[in-house]
Design a protein around this nucleic acid. Structure first.
Length: 402
DNA sequence: GTCAATTCACATGAAAGAGACCACGGTCTAGTG
DNA sequence: CTAGACCGTGGTCTCTTTCATGTGAATTGACGA
């Protein structure tokens, strides 16, 4: 009985492109980190004093997305925690918080709450005064002699939304603690992040700094090769495919995450098409698909008013075939659409902000230009690729008319 | 023709309000012994 | 007497409005050659 089933499963497995797809997923942590020896050692030597229970310097880690920052820091802290656990002591806590996750940790209150939850306390999602949360935080951290390592990932996002005074408070907190001590590891995508900071914060937070350079194409190839051996069945991928993946990603500031995504999606495409080998064609398709899905995802999850504005932009680009659209045009069209679909009309001020956000998201390209006596405006161009437009319009008109 | 002043149509900032959500503490109600 | 339902208060958070201020160059108009 069992062997029969095994046979069925085996045959499915054999035909499958993937042996173990999870290896290409973003949250997969390999046991060995390629081409980041220097960085891993750097992080380790800075954080090592935690093993002795000494105070750890605050650390700042910079690097573009997909350069392995989070991976390395987590790897090192895991190893340290393991060592501490082995030695039987329990005076080190590591807390990892991703400040970009919406609804989880993108405000001062929520970051604190997240830290407290990770430390085993519990704090309601909302409803308490912020200083009450601070007290709770101090209480839970300071209840015994210990070192608490707080890793704040994507910290630039947090500071942009909140302000750096929060970081200041956090660094100053040590002086209020009797038993415990806290150290902060900040991880940031933006290299210029430190420049905009309060000097006091900068000096206390940036005791140690580490820069993660992007991977080059060869390094990416190594990484991809290593993972693809485990992730795919034999004979599915060949050198050329991996080289192309690496080249694509290297063009985008050496983003390893993107390279892995590309490989995974290409594999999915090949599998779906029932083909037994991945080809360059699949990579190209995957590249388009990723781009497209990302855009559509963003558009779909945007609030209604944003969608209305986008609809106005798309309408204008289409009918008039204007190469350049201005804020005023969009606002007028937007008003029409709102009236037609019985939606509330927002102020121009607000629409202006919405446009700025679209610019950030890369959906439109907006440039502030001065047209002399005709005033100052954003000169706007829709940046959606053609293969996205139709689907986007469908999504928009669906969700707007309801 | 030249130059400074003017002016347009917004951009950009700051502050504050509305409404959703939530915790906490007090009060009320109904069930229990 | 007590557990649970129900309220009012005060807090956060997001989206938005209101009020204020800023801005770069085409246009205007005064001026001098």
């Amino acid at each position: 009985m069992g062997s029969k089933l095994d046979k069925i499963f085996d045959s499915v497995m054999k035909n499958s492109v993937f042996r173990n797809k999870s290896i290409l997923q973003i949250n997969y942590r390999p046991d060995e980190i390629l081409h980041r020896d220097e960085q891993v050692e750097g992080v380790a030597s800075i954080l090592a004093p935690a093993l002795r229970g000494d105070r750890v310097s605050n650390l700042f880690v910079f690097g573009k997305t997909g350069t392995g920052k989070t991976l390395c820091v987590q790897y090192v802290t895991n190893e340290i925690s393991k060592r501490v656990a082995d030695s039987g002591e329990n005076n080190l806590k590591v807390v990892y918080v991703n400040c970009k996750l919406k609804k989880v940790a993108d405000t001062e209150y929520r970051i604190l709450a997240e830290i407290i939850n990770n430390l085993g306390g519990s704090v309601p999602a909302t409803g308490l005064p912020t200083d009450a949360v601070y007290n709770k935080f101090i209480e839970i951290v300071d209840n015994k002699k210990q070192t608490v390592l707080i890793i704040l990932d994507e910290i630039d996002q947090a500071v942009k939304k909140i302000s750096d005074s929060f970081l200041y408070t956090l660094t100053r907190l040590n002086s209020e603690l009797k038993n415990a001590q806290i150290s902060i590891v900040g991880i940031s995508n933006s290299l210029t992040f430190m420049d905009g900071l309060d000097p006091r914060v900068r000096s206390s937070l940036g005791e140690e700094e580490l820069v993660f350079p992007p991977y080059n194409a060869l390094q990416l190839q190594d990484i991809l090769k290593k993972r693809s051996i485990e992730a795919f069945n034999e004979g599915i991928v060949d050198e050329g495919v991996i080289a192309k993946c690496a080249a694509f990603a290297a063009r985008e500031h050496g983003d390893a995450r993107r390279a892995l995504d590309l490989l995974r999606v290409a594999g999915e495409l090949a599998e779906r098409a029932g083909e037994s080998k991945m080809t360059l064609k699949h990579i190209d398709e995957a590249n388009k698909k990723i781009e497209r899905d990302k855009m559509l995802d963003i558009i779909d999850s945007e609030p209604k008013q944003f969608q209305l504005v986008l609809l106005a932009i798309m309408g204008l680009t289409e009918d008039k075939n204007f190469d350049k659209i201005f804020t005023g045009d969009i606002y007028n069209r937007y008003q029409e659409i709102c009236e037609k679909s019985k939606n509330e009309v927002l102020t121009q001020r607000r629409v202006s902000d919405i446009l700025a956000e679209f610019d950030m998201l890369g959906i439109i390209n907006a440039k502030v230009v001065s047209k002399g006596r005709q005033g100052r405006t954003r000169e706007i161009r829709l940046m959606l690729p053609d293969n996205v437009k139709d689907k986007a319009k469908e999504i928009l008109s669906n969700s707007v008319s309801i």
